[in-house]
Design a protein around this nucleic acid. Structure first.
Lengths: 337, 337
DNA sequence: TTGAAAGCGCTAACAA
DNA sequence: TTGTTAGCGCTTTCAA
């Protein structure tokens, strides 16, 4: 089943078939119709290999991410994949979970072998070597979830997000506001924990509130980690115990809510809790949070790539900052008098 | 950067380079060394497109799944992807979430275009047309998570799993055991809800316990759904209230645990709860569950494909049933006297 | 064990 | 607008 058979059946040349089916170059309406009909009849689908070899385009995008097991990553992936599929692009997945070896293999072996036209890197801080490698290959690259030097990246303003969450608590009248931040290990990639901590500090400082180390506990962005950290903070004697906690992710906030309950504290009467993300289950937990929109972030990354890949593609998706939004639910309230 | 340059530098023909690098055909040790050195020096990586076109092999496997947002699916994907990468294979992801249109596009347009050597279908019941389409293309296909007629599939024995969970409760002395099953919508794919319900029924019947509709509530496999269903079951007057609940997934079991707490019931003193999966957070919740091993299932699917794809591949991974295992934690105990 | 050379199926430059 | 044709870079027969 090759293009030649379609050409024969349609009574045109292979070049015309190629043009008609790919939409590149001019083809008369009649020719196009006959080609489409012939292709349909024969069940013809172009061979990607042949097409790529001849054209240099693969119609395939590589998506590189550090984990598959966290809500944020799969959401970005889902958004990007759906959007790419609509443009006729395939997605090749490179998951870097596991030893660091995998990372090297991906960059030195998998990505260069001309299988992808472009790369989306999710929450990965690429090294200069890695960026250079992709650029020398002429592969457009866009980052999602944090800045990569010299590369177009999409990320919410993490400082502002944390500040917004904290200001929400301050606005309710809280003055002793704890922080469940990210630990050093999770800071590796985009200093996200650091930024979210900064936002919390800025908000406190602006309100003339003290920044105290004893209301800070760090964790690894899991429910369990958030639980442990919250136990630590909320187990303190009443005079030291925060009346509100800002958790740097919803999953940690869930852990904090469970910890509060296990300590016999009521949320929000005894302690208010706010997270970041708007995870699928946050609504169920009644968690107040600052929503970000990873599916849309994935889709936007695709738009940007398409504008570089396709001649008439959506022109240069603008540089507007990514949206985030406070969603107030039942986990926050005024402190008890 | 083509094979010709490597050949020139190594002082051999392109055929020898191809043989040396692919490992197919005989090459003298010296020739191989020189080729490898030359390739290394030039940073040469074969062009997949050219290689595929010439050989008919893509070294790429398509993985089709219905969702990305659930633990089971991403775990299978992760296991399969890591395993494939080790064999030098890429993974192209086809996520069918969204309208049914996507499903058709994937099968009629994306999969046939000679981009993949084989397909792994996760928790999808393919139609005959879809299976035939793949077979005519000569693409090996293996299913994970449920049977596909006429296709090698990997799945735990869902009836046995549910029976085991229920028998655990019976063994502890429970006689009124509720079921949080899957609703009709989620039954579409592999009748998994139906099978897990059957296991529950078998266990009860074997123990001469009655099967009562009023201790059954169905949900959609989410935490929230499990919560609602459990509220229903556990809100019943004492004489009707089950002393134990089998939930057909861990996520629903989490919901049930939360519901119990909100009703002021203690787990396991007032009600025992058991799930299925051994989700990442189950240990944290102290949830007794029947573990299955999706990462390993994904890896096994790959082994099977490899044995069909690679000449000397692991020969026919055997047909042994997939393992599952009761993990007893703190959510189950004897009923209160 | 090696090399020469004929494709693999398509695209795109060029000519008509 | 259409057709002719020369590659794209590799693999794999076939012969040596």
């Amino acid at each position: 089943m090759s293009i030649a058979e379609v050409a024969r059946l349609a009574g045109v040349s292979t070049a015309t078939v190629s043009r008609a089916l790919s939409g590149r170059g001019h083809v008369s309406a009649t020719a196009r119709e006959r080609v489409v009909a012939a292709a349909q009849e024969l069940g013809y689908v172009v061979s990607q290999a042949a097409s790529s070899l001849a054209s240099g385009r693969t119609r395939n995008v590589g998506i590189v991410l550090p984990f598959l097991s966290r809500w944020y990553f799969t959401s970005v992936l889902e958004g990007a994949q759906q959007h790419l599929m609509r443009s006729g692009y395939d997605v090749t997945l490179y998951n870097l979970a596991g030893d660091g070896d995998e990372r090297r293999t991906v960059f030195e072996h998998f990505l260069p072998r001309q299988r992808v036209d472009a790369v989306i890197a999710v929450s990965l801080e690429l090294t200069e070597t890695e960026v250079t490698r992709l650029h020398t290959l002429g592969k457009p690259l866009v980052g999602v979830g944090g800045p990569i030097p010299g590369v177009r990246t999409l990320a919410i303003d993490d400082v502002a997000v944390a500040r917004l969450a904290t200001e929400h608590l301050i606005g309710l009248g809280h003055t002793r506001i704890g922080l469940i931040g990210g630990d050093v290990a999770s800071d590796a990639d985009f200093h996200l924990p650091t930024k979210r901590r900064q936002g919390w500090e800025h908000a406190l400082r602006d309100a003339d509130l003290p920044i105290e180390e004893r209301v800070v506990a760090n964790a690894d962005f899991t429910v369990q980690g958030g639980y442990r950290a919250a136990k630590q903070l909320l187990g303190a004697p009443l005079r030291d115990r925060p009346t509100a906690v800002f958790a740097a992710s919803d999953e940690m906030a869930f852990g904090a809510m469970l910890a509060a309950r296990d300590l016999g504290l009521h949320v929000p009467q005894d302690v208010s809790i706010v997270g970041v993300d708007d995870h699928d289950t946050s609504d169920f937990f009644g968690l107040t949070t600052v929503a970000q929109f990873p599916r849309e972030q994935g889709a936007l990354a695709v738009d940007i790539l398409m504008s570089q890949l396709e001649p008439g593609g959506d022109v240069a998706a603008s540089d507007t900052p990514l949206p985030f939004e406070l969603r107030v639910r039942s986990s926050t309230s005024r402190p008890r008098d």
